[in-house]
C-alpha cells in the first residue's frame, strides 16, 4: 500500500492508502476525490483525471508520452508543467507520500 494525498484547490486534503498496481485515477475514484472522473476508464480519451503533481514529485511519476501530451491540451483547467493525467501513472511503493493538486474546473 502506498500513501497518496490529494489537495483539492482552495478546499480540503484527502489522504489515503492505495493498492499498488492501480493507476492514480482508479486510486482517486476509490477515495472519492472530487473532480476526478476518469470517464473513459483510462484509455486517454477524456482528460477528466487531470492533476498537478507537487513539483518535487514530478520526476518520480515518469515521462509523459505523446498521446497523454496531446490529451493535456484539452483539460478543463489549462495545463502546467506539472500536469499529468492520473490514469497514466501507476501506483508503486516509490510514490509513497506523493502529493497531487486537484484543479477545480470552472
Amino acid at each position: 500500500m502506498t500513501r497518496i494525498t490529494w489537495k483539492i484547490e482552495g478546499d480540503r486534503d484527502i489522504s489515503g492508502e492505495v493498492e499498488d498496481g492501480l493507476n492514480l485515477m482508479e486510486a482517486a475514484i476509490a477515495h472519492d476525490v472530487p473532480y476526478i472522473y476518469g470517464e473513459c476508464g483510462g484509455c486517454l480519451s477524456c482528460a477528466t483525471c487531470h492533476v498537478f503533481v507537487e513539483p518535487e514529485w514530478l520526476e518520480m511519476t515518469g515521462p509523459v508520452d505523446d498521446v497523454e501530451d496531446a490529451m493535456l491540451e484539452m483539460t478543463d483547467v489549462e495545463r502546467r508543467k506539472t500536469s499529468r493525467l492520473s490514469c497514466q501513472v501507476e501506483v508503486s511503493p516509490e510514490l509513497d507520500g506523493l502529493v497531487l493538486h486537484v484543479p477545480i474546473p470552472e
Partner: peptide, 10 residues
C-alpha cells in the same frame, strides 16, 4: 492522432 482529437474537441 490524439492531437487533432484533443484540439478538435475544444
Amino acid at each position: 492522432d490524439t492531437r487533432s482529437f484533443a484540439l478538435g474537441r475544444r
